[in-house]
Amino acid sequence: MIFTKEGSLIIVSQEKNSIERFLENLENEYAKFKNDNLVLDLLSFSELTPYNVISFLEIARKHKKNGKSFVLVSDQVSYDDVPEEINLVPSLQEARDVVEMEEIERDLGL
């Protein structure tokens, strides 16, 4: 796993592993970044399915309950194919924008 910290945001990416292994590693390392906003870069996974994205639902719920943003980045799956609880965007810049908007909403108490 590759971790890139940008302020209160951590971008997590993976090379040469399966999506299942990526999720397993994320769950094992979760305590290290539970207090940061998370962006999971799934762009390197060429055969991603809606089912793969939905497998992140439990950790997304837990992270949002913690008051932090959780955003997945993939251009392989449409956001229409996953539950509303999962923030799914096609680019890293859009993920940064979502995190910024959610930070503003939390600051305003919305």
Rank of each mutant, 00 (worst) to 15 (best):
E85V: 11
K62N: 14
Y30G: 03
I86C: 05
E29R: 01
P90C: 12
Y30H: 09
E15V: 11
E84K: 02
E105K: 03
D41Q: 05
S69L: 02
I10C: 10
L92F: 05
Y79D: 15
S74P: 01
R21H: 11
L38F: 05
S55F: 11
G67I: 05
E15R: 00
E58L: 13
V73A: 08
L57H: 11
S74T: 10
N35K: 02
R21M: 15
L108Q: 02
M101A: 15
K16D: 15
V98E: 13
L110R: 02
L43P: 00
Y79K: 13
K64Y: 04
F33M: 09
L40I: 15
I2V: 12
K34T: 14
G7R: 00
E102T: 07
S69P: 01
V99K: 01
R96M: 13
D75R: 03
I2P: 00
V53W: 05
I86A: 05
F33T: 04
L92K: 01
E20H: 05
R61Q: 11
I2A: 13
V73R: 00
L38M: 14
V89C: 06
V82G: 03
E24C: 11
H63E: 08
F56S: 11
I54H: 05
L9I: 15
D107P: 00
E20M: 12
L110W: 06
D107N: 10
E102Q: 07
E102V: 02
V98D: 11
A95F: 03
I54S: 10
S91R: 08
A95D: 11
Q76F: 05
L26P: 01
Q93T: 14
D97A: 12
S91Y: 09
F70M: 10
